[in-house]
Simulated scan of single mutants.
Amino acid sequence: MTSTTRFTALAAPLLILFYGIMRFVDGLDGDRGNGPAWNIGHAAFFLAFVLMAVLAVSLRQQVPAVARWQRVVRDGALVAALVGASAFLFVTLTDLVPAIDVSLPEPLELGLPVLFQVGMLTLLGQLVAARLVPLWSPIVMLAGFLAIAVNLDALPFAAVVILAGLSPLATRSLRPVRP
């Protein structure tokens, strides 16, 4: 595993955790938005998804794909993850810069970020199939993203869960995992 994978697998969830904390701090006055905590938190979230995109590229490079169909799935998963991460980045940027008066249509704003999760889970699933990460890793990561989908106030908890799901990537080199 590369140092890029280790760094991004650790730093991205920590930045999401920081965003969740800043979101909580920003809401202490009963109003969310347009303050230092809002801006700092959103900047952290933006950076987190830049790092998530880098992580997706790094994972794609590590997925062993012998057969053509495996390469197609691997590359399709990377495209999905990058499109989804781009959607997160676009929405976050429009929150940070109110002068950007362009928004995605609501179905795209809701649907495109799901592509990130599908892509990442597919890449992680391929690493599971190659026995390079444990089966629980993508399952735990999915649980973290589901927690965010249920309630944005769960962001700090969800970030810790996502960090746990990515911990095999952050803490050791990819090597065969026992069944």
Rank of each mutant, 00 (worst) to 15 (best):
D26C: 07
Q62W: 00
V57P: 04
V25G: 02
D29W: 01
L14Y: 05
V66I: 14
I21W: 15
G41L: 10
A43L: 14
L47N: 05
A11R: 02
L104N: 10
L59S: 07
R68K: 14
Q61H: 15
R71P: 00
V91Q: 12
Q70V: 08
A80S: 15
L112F: 11
L14R: 05
L51W: 04
F49N: 04
D75Y: 06
T122Y: 08
L17K: 00
F49Q: 01
A9Q: 04
Q117E: 07
V54F: 01
P105T: 10
H42N: 12
G125R: 12
F49C: 00
G111F: 11
A37Y: 11
L132W: 03
I100E: 14
R74V: 14
L78P: 04
L59C: 11
L14A: 11
L96G: 10
S86R: 01
Q61A: 14
G119L: 02
L51M: 11
L10I: 03
L93A: 15
V102M: 10
I100D: 14
R23E: 13
L123E: 06
T5E: 06
D75N: 15
L15F: 06
L108F: 03
N34D: 14
F45A: 08
T5R: 07
A37N: 07
G125S: 07
L82C: 09
L96T: 07
P113E: 15
V118G: 04
Q61T: 10
R131K: 10
L123A: 08
Q62F: 00
P98N: 08
L127W: 08
Q70E: 15
M22K: 05
G125T: 09
V66C: 05
I16S: 06
A37E: 09
V54Q: 08
G125Y: 01
V66S: 14
L59N: 10
F88A: 05
A37Q: 08
G84E: 01
L115N: 04
V63K: 11
L89T: 05
P98W: 12
D101F: 00
F45D: 02
L108P: 10
A87L: 03
A67K: 15
A9C: 10
F45C: 03
L124H: 09
D29I: 04
L112Q: 05
P64H: 10
Q126T: 00
G111A: 13
G119D: 02
F116D: 01
A85Y: 00
G33S: 06
V54W: 02
L110W: 11
A65T: 11
G33K: 12
I100F: 13
R71G: 15
A81H: 02
T94I: 14
M22A: 11
P13W: 00
L51F: 12
T122Q: 01
L28K: 03
S103D: 13
L108E: 11
V83W: 02
H42G: 08
P105R: 02
I40E: 02
